[in-house]
Amino acid sequence: MGSGHSHSHDHGHGHAHAPADFGNAFLIGIILNTGFVIVEAVYGWISGSMALLADAGHNLSDVLALVLAWTASIAAERPPSERFTYGFKSSTILAALANAGLLLVAIGAILFETLHRIAEPAPVQGDTMAIVAGIGILINAGTAALFMRGQHDINIRGAFLHMAADALVSLGVVIAGLAIIWTGERWIDPVVSLVIVLVIAWGTWGLLKDSVAMSLLAVPKGISEAGVRAYLSARPGVEAVHSLHIWPMSTTETALTAHLVMPGGHPGDDVLREIQRDLDHHHRIGHATIQIERSHPDKACC
């Protein structure tokens, strides 16, 4: 059987790599939030506020998430080797999955103590809650602003959502502290803590779902397998498309392999480069491998 094989890879276009652009953002976020976790935990203990302690636990998980995301994104920049021919690009996917796991652990620990406090409300210093949480709004909102761009990367998006949610949670704690000052009701603190848990769980579900899908090599969000297949099938001389696979190499890069049945033979390198450019520019697939076949495998002679 006569067949032509061609592998077209794109290394000329710029792909979004989080570490180079967000190294300082990660570092600033880690330093600020580590300091705040310590302050919040200490004053949460002093004031007896479960809401502050819950928020401190959440912020701690976010610090660990930032560390993991930063470490993984740096590892993703390492060049390929004989054993790891893709380098360590997929470490960013593992980091996203690990971050989701950390959040689940935080949810369980906070929920356990929150339910205990709901059953047995404890005295709480509302003024301390409001002041410390107010500082948290500034720190978390400032950190979130560092990650506003780069939403195409699940790690950057996760960092932004975590920090933005933390700012909203801190706002809730401020409101709870003021409500306790005005009413003196103890139940307000654990109820706000429960709301915090629900907010964390909502954000965690999305991150967990996306990171698991990437780990299972699902077609990345925003890329249509049907659209890619239709584009390849519509190319002049293409009779059929089979063995089409699209998967994430990292949280920002996508790869593709496909077999094109072209009875007229190999169309030439220029045509393959055009296909590769179209896949990159219109479908966000930067690493494409195309194999040309003269006949479909089912029709091939032995």
Rank of each mutant, 00 (worst) to 15 (best):
R83Y: 03
A122P: 00
V124G: 06
L102C: 13
A106Y: 07
I93K: 12
A98F: 10
F88D: 03
T114C: 11
I110S: 14
G87A: 07
A130I: 03
S90C: 10
G87R: 09
F112G: 00
A130F: 07
G87K: 04
S91N: 09
T114P: 08
F84N: 13
V124Y: 05
I139F: 04
V132L: 09
N99F: 09
L94A: 13
I118H: 00
V124F: 07
F84C: 03
R83N: 11
A98G: 06
R117S: 12
A122V: 15
G136Y: 03
I107H: 06
I135T: 02
A109Q: 08
P121I: 14
A119T: 11
A119K: 11
T128R: 11
I131K: 09
K89C: 12
Y86G: 04
F84W: 13
E113Y: 08
R83L: 09
A109G: 04
R117N: 07
G87C: 06
S90G: 05
F112R: 10
I118P: 01
I93V: 15
E120L: 13
M129V: 07
A144V: 01
T85W: 08
G134I: 05
A122F: 12
V132K: 06
L103A: 06
F112Q: 09
I131D: 01
I107D: 08
L97R: 06
F88Y: 15
L104C: 09
S90M: 11
G136C: 05
A98V: 11
G126F: 08
A98L: 15
P123K: 05
F112M: 09
T128M: 14
I135E: 00
A141R: 01
L97H: 03
A145M: 12
D127L: 13
A98H: 01
A98T: 08
L115Q: 05
I118T: 03
I93L: 11
A141L: 11
V105H: 00
Y86V: 02
I118N: 00
N140G: 10
T114M: 08
M129D: 07
G136T: 01
G108M: 06
G134V: 06
L94D: 02
T128Q: 12
P123E: 12
A144D: 02
E113P: 05
G87V: 00
I131Q: 03
A96D: 08
A95M: 08
Q125H: 14
V124A: 08
L103W: 01
D127R: 14
R117C: 10
A144Y: 01
A133F: 06
A95C: 07
T143L: 06
E113F: 10
P121R: 05
L104V: 11
G101Q: 02
S91E: 10
A145K: 07
A100T: 08
V124M: 05
G134D: 07
P123G: 12
K89Y: 12
L102G: 09
N140K: 11
L94C: 01
A133K: 02
D127N: 14
I107T: 14
G87Q: 02
A98P: 02
Q125N: 15
L102M: 14
A100W: 01
A96M: 10
A144Q: 03
A106Q: 05
E120A: 15
R83P: 00
Y86P: 00
A100K: 03
A95G: 04
K89Q: 15
E120Y: 11
V132W: 07
A141E: 03
I139H: 01
A122W: 05
M129F: 12
I131R: 06
E113R: 14
L97P: 02
I131G: 04
K89M: 15
V124E: 02
A96N: 07
F112L: 10
S91K: 02
G142A: 04
